[in-house]
Design a binder for these strands. Structure first.
Length: 597
RNA sequence: GGGGCUGUAGUAGAGUUGGUUACAACGCCGGCCUGUCACGCCGGAGGUCGCGGGUUCAAGUCCCGUCAGCCCCGCCA
């Protein structure tokens, strides 16, 4: 049996990546993992790594034979401790690529604290490894520099958030994780109760109701960096458990909330990546965002706006456009400057792309010296062509793309296409951060399946004061005191002013088709609380994971979370979720309808 | 629930029209080497081609099914 060396009274003095030229001449004691051993027969170099980086250990048999021969046993990922003197590297051997490249540690004593199996992949920044293998060995993947950087930055951001919000008078308060299921919105994760057989808790989709209770309690300004849970399908930017920066404030208006949050976001960007965010941030109404960009989360790093040409084609001979225009639909266009060079294949791909969002097709026009080169050119008169060219600012070399459909489809399809083209053509500067608030969302949207209005945000969202009369006459037109913060085409946060007036809240439930009894059953505790002197209040929640994706440049939310789930919501490391034994089910009073075999 | 992509030594890949014993790289093991730094040189080991079935004289390759991972639509108050 080969025993490891004991730590004994050794104390680490520095981290590897911190030992730079200013420490030359000092004796140091370092501990970490062996990145690589380079054995030159005589001299041995060991690159020693910890979370701060890598430093070179030099083991010369002429200086200390014992440590040199111990170094011969060392392999990748062994855990070692080393004592030695920080020395300048000999002339001509400085490595300018390394932060610690001007120095090396002349080792006089070496301990092997632990050995390691050969890892399934190299712990470096070069190895490209299938994500399933990275996730199975996540503890090794987390040793690699990229994830170390991301999680260290995540810590700094969380710390910045706490400092900033504390400085603004916010108090961090924990809310329950075992809470009540309210089947509005996303599906809940349910937790059975052994003590109350047949009853279930739900894991919170957000602390929404509790933070409103805290306002009633007078805490005035609350925040929490908090895990939330939604049992829905995953995406590149969606995990079943995710982290929110959750805030709620009393005695404030929308503008007050937006201002204090702009301060928080700009402080985060300054602290994390040294970027100065221009304040105040841009603001767009929901209606304007849809009109100009087709979506409520536009990427404002590039122009390329949607142009409404419905009026110009309503009388044209092109039935596809004219019928849509005559039937309350929208015909909108993008002018992709200088892209008349697109191939037939590329145009077909763009057509396939808009079909994903329900568009029936994509009409295209290449603007040439001889006029429109397009399958649809023949349907328009010279006057109509001139009017369209003027409206679209069409010039030779431009590519015009059209979608005609009901408004929701035309906007979404063309808006997504805009984002897609921004990517494809590299229109968005990677180092640019364009924020915008989206305001004045509709309060309701009509659910065709359930044949009733549903809340766009949640049922406690306050309408715009000037729209309150519309609740009785035209609820579909009522706008909400809700706001999202959008960054580079990604929704990173959203919130609203809440209803603190019982009459308005009752009317709201009525319109949502929630009767008094149902409202009592689901939200009785909140309604009770609101009746005991609720202050005007509102709040917001930011998706910390999404913010971190943008700050780190990660393509996947999994790269900013230490132990993420796969698309099927599984943890490849722990193999959760798993089946449980019959005894556990019995105690919970649960019998499964189907037993997977 | 639906659409798409991927699956070959430990890792990431090549593998032609179905045709001998499935390749080279990195890693690993052994040897050599006193200034390397993604060290170098010499030698070696390492494979249920995701899994199951089918077609065929013959399947990594073709067909069907299935599993897993990823991207997207629906879903995400």
């Amino acid at each position: 049996m080969i025993l490891n060396d004991q730590l004994g009274n050794w104390k680490r003095t520095h981290r590897c990546g911190d030992v730079t030229a200013e420490y030359i001449g000092r004796d140091v004691c370092l501990m970490g993992w062996v990145q690589r051993r380079r054995d030159h027969g005589g001299l041995i170099f060991i690159d020693l790594r910890d979370r701060e980086g890598i430093v070179q250990l030099a083991l010369d048999p002429d200086r200390d034979l014992a440590s040199h021969s111990k170094a011969e046993q060392v392999r990748n990922e062994y855990v070692v401790a080393a004592r030695g003197k920080v020395s300048p590297r000999p002339e001509g051997t400085v490595n300018p690529k390394m932060k610690t490249g001007e120095v090396e540690i002349e080792i006089s004593e070496l301990l092997i604290l632990n050995r390691s199996e050969t890892p399934p992949f190299m712990i470096d920044e070069y190895a490209e490894v299938a994500e399933s293998i990275r996730l199975k060995h996540r503890y090794l993947d987390l040793r690699r520099p990229a994830l170390q950087r991301n999680l260290l930055m995540r810590h700094r951001v969380a710390k910045t958030v706490r400092n900033y919000l504390d400085s603004q008078g916010f108090i961090e308060i924990e809310t329950p994780v075992l809470t009540k299921s309210t089947p509005e919105g996303a599906r809940d994760y349910l937790v059975p109760s052994r003590v109350n057989t047949g009853s279930f808790y739900a894991l919170p989709q957000s602390p929404q109701l509790f933070k409103q209770l805290l306002m009633v309690s007078g805490f005035d300004r609350y925040f929490q960096i908090v895990k939330c849970f939604r049992d829905e399908d995953l995406r590149a930017d969606r995990q079943p458990e995710f982290t929110q920066i959750d805030c709620e404030l009393s005695f404030v208006t929308r503008d007050d909330i937006m201002n204090v949050m702009e301060g928080m976001i700009s402080t985060i960007f300054k602290e994390a990546i040294g970027v100065e965010v221009a304040l105040p941030m841009a603001r767009l109404t929901y209606a304007e965002a849809l009109e100009r960009f087709g979506v409520d989360n536009p990427d404002l790093r590039f122009d390329l706006e949607l142009i409404n040409i419905t009026e110009l084609v309503v009388d044209s001979q092109f039935k596809v456009f004219a019928d849509v225009a005559a039937g309350n639909g929208l015909v909108k266009a993008l002018n992709v400057k200088g892209s008349a060079t697109f191939s037939r294949k590329e145009l077909d791909d763009l057509t396939d792309f808009v079909k994903i969002y329900g568009a029936k097709g994509l009409a295209w026009v290449k603007v040439t010296e001889k006029g429109w080169q397009s399958p649809i050119a023949k349907f328009f008169t010279a006057d109509e062509l001139a009017a369209l060219n003027r409206k679209l600012d069409a010039q030779v070399g431009d590519l015009l793309l059209f979608v005609a459909d009901k408004p929701s489809v035309a906007n979404e399809a063309l808006g997504r296409l805009r984002g897609h083209l921004g990517q494809k053509l590299g229109l968005a500067d990677k180092d640019s951060y364009k924020f915008s608030w989206i305001t004045d969302f509709p309060l309701f949207e009509y659910d065709g399946e359930e044949k009733r209005h549903v809340a766009v945000h949640h049922p406690f969202t306050s309408p715009l004061v000037e729209d309150i009369p519309l609740l009785d006459t035209d609820p579909g037109k009522v706008r909400a005191q809700a706001y999202d913060l959008v960054l580079n085409g990604s929704e990173i946060g959203g919130g609203s002013i809440r209803i603190h007036d019982q009459a308005v809240q009752s009317r709201m439930f009525e319109l949502l088709g929630i009767d008094h009894e149902e409202a009592r059953e689901k939200f009785g505790f909140l309604l009770d609380a609101l009746s005991y002197g609720a202050p005007p209040h509102g709040g917001i929640a930011f998706g910390l994971d999404r913010v971190m994706m943008i700050l780190t440049g990660a393509d996947s939310i999994r790269d900013v979370i230490a132990f993420p789930k796969t698309q099927k919501a599984a943890c490849l490391l722990s193999e959760a979720p798993n089946e449980v034994n019959e005894k556990q089910l019995q105690e919970l009073g649960i019998r499964l309808r189907t037993r997977q075999k």
